[in-house]
Amino acid sequence: MATFVDPVADAAEAYEGLRGLAHATRAFEDPADTYRVLGEVSGSVRLLRQVLDQLSRAHADHRDIAF
């Protein structure tokens, strides 16, 4: 479950969730489920953009110690 305070743990969980989704979307029992999955993935992509923006900002703000 997401911690909302530990980015390392939450990133690991997101990775595992995407790994599971990659496996689960090999086949659909009900093709109508693709619409809901597309909606959830679309929302996830929007949040991923926010995450990448925040990561780049944090990296730039601390570039003197970032490696």
Rank of each mutant, 00 (worst) to 15 (best):
H23A: 08
F28T: 12
L55H: 01
A11R: 15
R49H: 03
P31N: 01
V5P: 03
D30P: 00
Y35D: 13
T34Q: 15
R49T: 04
V51Y: 00
A32I: 01
F67W: 13
R63H: 04
G43E: 14
V8P: 00
A11L: 15
L52S: 13
L47F: 05
R63Q: 00
L48N: 01
S56M: 12
L55Q: 04
A32H: 02
D10S: 05
I65W: 08
E29M: 07
D33A: 06
D61C: 01
R46W: 13
R49L: 05
F67K: 14
A22Y: 13
V41H: 03
M1E: 05
L55W: 04
F67E: 11
V45C: 01
V51G: 01
M1S: 07
R19A: 03
A12T: 07
V51P: 00
Y35N: 11
L38A: 10
E40F: 07
R49C: 03
D53N: 11
I65T: 09
A12P: 02
T34D: 09
A58Q: 04
E13V: 08
G39F: 08
Y15M: 11
R49I: 10
V45Y: 02
A60Y: 06
D64M: 06
D6I: 06
E40N: 05
A58W: 01
Q50N: 15
S56A: 13
D33N: 08
D6K: 04
G17M: 10
A2G: 05
L47P: 02
A24V: 03
H23M: 07
D33E: 10
T3E: 14
H23R: 11
R63N: 00
L18K: 08
F28G: 03
R49Y: 05
V5C: 08
G39L: 12
E40H: 05
S44V: 11
R57T: 05
R46G: 04
T3I: 08
V37H: 04
P31Q: 03
F28Q: 07
Y35W: 15
L52I: 14
L52G: 01
P7C: 00
A32D: 04
G39E: 10
G17W: 05
A9I: 09
Q50G: 10
E29C: 03
A32V: 02
A22P: 03
G20C: 09
L21A: 07
Y35R: 14
A66L: 08
